[in-house]
């Protein structure tokens, strides 16, 4: 049965309120989820006051300012700081997005709540275990399977190449899949009753739409059971949160249409 409450040791308790920085004219309050595997404590929400004049405008800038100036143990993933690597995906004020492309000015005037991606195992603080997510991506065989053996490149017209627009740009940040209720309830089953999630399915569509690929039928066969694809009920949280502006819901609907057409 779906669990309706968190287990006792997962309940988020009130955390530490860290001191305000001296002499700061403009402060922004951050409430950040903290949990460490090294102690036996429950997760907690710490309050930090960020001097916004002393750091860049993005949420990631604020988080790194906290790490540099207040609490160096704050743990998060980050790399490119420009929205292309996908490392800093997290839940900001209730919505999944990249911390490096989310401006503090887009977060209203009140405090900024920062949580790790929902319904994922937490490694520490804002870092979640994404191994399942990557496994699901691997499962859809994200590589070209062609029977041709051209002397040079596989040819593709501009029109055919256009079909990959809106699909190839995915940076696998996991914002979409971890915002999907179906993925929460069915994304980690580990057996044949597992939903692959919007990101893996968007990539599946990317390969299904690639004119150079020859394994369309086999790819569709793999998706045809009741769970891998069909747990999608067009809830559309995925499209609402994608920080790259992609549309997993539309891609998934495209796969469903392909399956209907080939069954005629």
């Amino acid at each position: 049965m779906v669990e309706l409450t968190l287990p006792k040791n997962s309940k988020v308790i009130k955390g530490k309120v860290w001191p305000k920085p001296d002499g700061a004219a403009n402060l922004r309050e951050y409430r950040i989820y903290r949990w460490s595997p090294d102690d036996a404590e429950n997760p907690r929400l710490d309050t930090f006051y960020v001097d916004v004049d002393d750091c860049g405008p993005m949420i990631l800038d604020g988080l790194l300012w906290v790490k540099d100036n207040i609490d160096p143990t704050l743990t998060l993933r980050r790399s490119c700081r420009e929205g292309i690597c996908g490392s800093c995906a997290m839940n900001i004020n209730g919505a999944n997005t990249l911390a490096c492309t989310k401006g503090m000015d887009e977060c209203g005037k009140g405090n900024i709540a920062v949580h790790p991606l929902p319904h994922q195992p937490v490694v520490k603080d804002l870092v979640t275990d994404l191994s399942k997510f990557y496994e699901q991506h691997a499962e859809i065989q994200p590589f070209l399977q062609s029977n041709d053996n051209p002397a040079a490149e596989h040819s593709q017209t501009p029109g055919e190449r256009e079909k990959l627009d809106g699909l190839y740009e995915c940076i696998l940040c996991a914002s979409c899949s971890t915002s999907c209720p179906s993925y929460w309830w069915n994304g980690d089953k580990g057996d044949e009753n597992e939903y692959l999630g919007p990101a893996a399915l968007l990539q599946a569509y990317r390969w299904l739409q690639d004119s150079r690929d020859d394994e369309r039928n086999a790819r569709l066969d793999m998706l045809e059971d009741n769970f891998k694809l069909y747990r999608c009920h067009t809830i559309m949280n995925c499209t609402q949160v994608c920080p790259k502006g992609l549309n997993p819901a539309e891609a998934i609907a495209g796969i469903k249409r392909m399956l209907v057409e080939r069954s005629r």
């Binding site: 045809e224 059971d225 009741n226 694809l229 069909y230 469903k256 209907v260």
Partner: peptide, 11 residues
């Protein structure tokens, strides 16, 4: 098992 998902969807 394999055709089930699409059949359900169509129905």
């Amino acid at each position: 098992m394999s055709q089930k998902g699409t059949a359900h969807f169509i129905f």
